[in-house]
Design a protein around this nucleic acid. Structure first.
Length: 544
DNA sequence: AGTTTCATATGG
DNA sequence: CTCGCCATATGAAACT
């Protein structure tokens, strides 16, 4: 069952029941308290909710204590459909969808993002020419219903509707999960974080001042350079200091400094590491993003062209390993951390249907298996070659290893080669489920064409890996026992916060969900996607 | 003074 | 002959 939703003013809004083909099976009803109406209907029928934008409406429902199981997100779906037609970047708001359907001027998204996301409100119709709206649109709920019908028809016209329907479903489910994780937050122990910062940086400084440990290192660096003032936080100043010491450097990156023999290098490397922690995940970060024991990031489903998520603020997807010590389960609870190892090469094996590669992927450690097959047991070489093949490396020391890979796994090799050739020729490539890469812009020079080839080569793999991960996330979410909660998702890794006694059950659900995700995408393929799952009190203790 | 770019770090 | 993907976030430097 489907129910269309359109939020109105003052917490009210419209609901309309639809048949499976999207045709209304009842008149639209107005409810003064939309959240309560949705809660009742969810309990009674658990329909798939059809609405303009999960990011706009669902946080409000969550704040009202309402959760739903399934939805169809019109804006995310519109972005997928436009992309599929090579129309990347066209407006995807409900108003734009409705305008296109009715051959009216299409209102732009602001900064490429629908107005609904900026305002936290569902898109209304103020951007459309008023007479046209009044004569055609009726109520916003009508635009939701016709928009859904329109998208349903367009999905059926894609090259593989079954796959595209799955893509739409996992994209929408991901949006629900993202809103829930932002709402629930990642358990974050401020006291542990604080102790960690004091241990690394010394006592918290007054606002604007540098922490004691950094001041001390800065002093040692200055002394190593002969005593004059040096600002280690300024790359330009550092380069000048090294030049004065008779050492010419291309940059002051850590890996460059590691090869330099100078007394300033050791304290400098330590300074860089700690400076990073202080500026990006220090006291200021914590006061901004952590409240009542939870870190509340804002995830952006579909924020990356490959379908990976992005974040808006808080840097949730770049939490440094050392800082993860502050991520701790509540008393009596556990974290279940699941990481899909070597996801991208396994995805490539499944997509390409490379028998020999697939056979290697049956082992727990794919790189070890590749090494045994084609690299004389040298795992490091096998790994470098594999990554090089997926990223489009054609030069450097990995060339012989790449040749070995090409010779041993020609089917998989040809799969990424073809994606690269398509990109170089200015064509579009698609993920397994049909997410389409953005088109090339303008005429490409030779180097631009090759860069685009590397991009499309990687796109097919990265985007399909993101699809498997979304399917995993959606499945885990639907199967979690109350009151366990998904609390983190990072490309190929999920974290569940659960009462300790349910943790073993959650682990089973996660493994089962990985298998379901595999089957949803690849059906009878025998490629395995092993999950490394651990039950821990602290995120930093998870293997990975 | 405000905005954009660069350099460097983090994550996958 | 070249020749490694996708991101976010910070502060410094350069720019308007």
């Amino acid at each position: 069952m489907l129910v269309a939703v359109a939020a109105g003013e003052g917490g009210g809004g419209w609901l309309q029941t639809l048949a499976d083909d999207g045709a209304p099976s009842a008149a639209a009803e107005h409810h003064g308290d939309l959240a309560s109406a949705i809660a009742r209907r969810e309990k009674a029928d658990s329909p798939r909710w059809v609405w303009a934008c999960t990011a706009a409406i669902y946080p409000r429902l969550l704040r009202a204590g309402v959760r739903v199981a399934r939805c169809h997100d019109l804006e995310l779906t519109e972005a997928l459909l436009l992309g599929h037609d090579g129309r990347w970047g066209e407006p995807r708001s409900l108003a734009a969808l409705w305008a296109r359907r009715n051959h009216l001027p299409v209102p732009p998204d602001v900064d490429g993002v629908p107005e609904s996301i900026h305002s936290g409100q569902e898109a209304l119709f103020e951007d459309l020419p008023a007479p046209a709206v009044l004569s055609h649109a009726g109520e916003p709920i009508d635009a939701v219903v016709t928009g859904f019908v329109d998208q349903r028809e367009r999905v059926e016209r894609t090259g593989d509707p079954r796959r595209f329907r799955l893509l739409v479903a996992v994209e929408s489910a991901g949006a629900l999960a993202a809103a829930e994780m932002g709402h629930d937050g990642l358990p974050w122990r401020a006291d542990v974080h604080d102790a960690l910062l004091v241990e690394l940086l010394g006592d918290p400084p007054v606002a604007g001042a540098m922490p004691p440990r950094l001041v001390e290192l800065k002093q040692r660096i200055a002394e190593a350079f002969g005593g004059g003032p040096v600002h280690p936080e300024s790359p330009a100043d550092l380069l000048r200091a090294f030049t004065r010491a008779g050492i010419a450097l291309p940059s002051t990156r850590s890996f460059v400094l590691k090869g330099v023999d100078h007394p300033a290098v050791a304290p400098l490397l330590e300074f860089k590491e700690l400076y990073r922690v202080w500026t990006a995940h220090g006291w200021a970060w914590r006061s901004q993003w952590v409240h009542k024991g939870r870190f509340h990031p804002e995830y952006v489903p579909g924020g990356v062209v490959s379908g990976r998520w992005a974040t808006r603020g808080g840097g949730a997807l770049q939490i440094p390993k050392v800082v993860r010590r502050a991520v701790m389960a509540d008393d009596g609870w556990k974290l279940v951390v699941a990481d899909a190892g070597q996801l991208e090469p396994r995805v490539l094996a499944a997509m390409a249907g490379d028998q020999r590669f697939t056979e290697a992927g049956r082992a727990g450690d794919l790189y070890q298996a590749l090494a045994a097959e084609a690299f004389g047991g040298d795992r490091a070489r096998a790994k470098v070659a594999m990554l090089g093949a997926m990223y489009g490396q054609t030069g450097g020391s990995a060339v012989p290893a790449l040749a070995a890979l090409q010779a041993r796994y020609p089917v998989a090799w040809e799969f990424v080669e073809r994606a690269a050739r398509t990109g170089e020729g200015g064509g579009l490539v698609r993920s397994w489920l049909g997410r389409t890469c953005p088109p090339a812009r303008g005429r490409m020079s030779g180097e631009q064409a090759r860069a685009r080839g590397r991009f499309t080569r990687n796109f097919v793999v990265q985007a399909t890996a993101a699809e498997w991960a979304l399917a995993l996330l959606a499945t885990v979410r639907s199967r979690l026992p109350e009151p366990a909660r998904l609390v983190f998702f990072q490309h190929d890794e999920i974290v569940v916060h659960t009462p300790a006694h349910l943790a073993p059950e959650v682990v089973e659900h996660v493994h089962a969900s990985g298998e379901i995700a595999r089957r949803l995408l690849f059906g009878d393929s025998v490629v395995r996607f092993p999950l490394d799952v651990s039950i821990v009190d602290c995120y930093a203790d998870a293997k990975g």
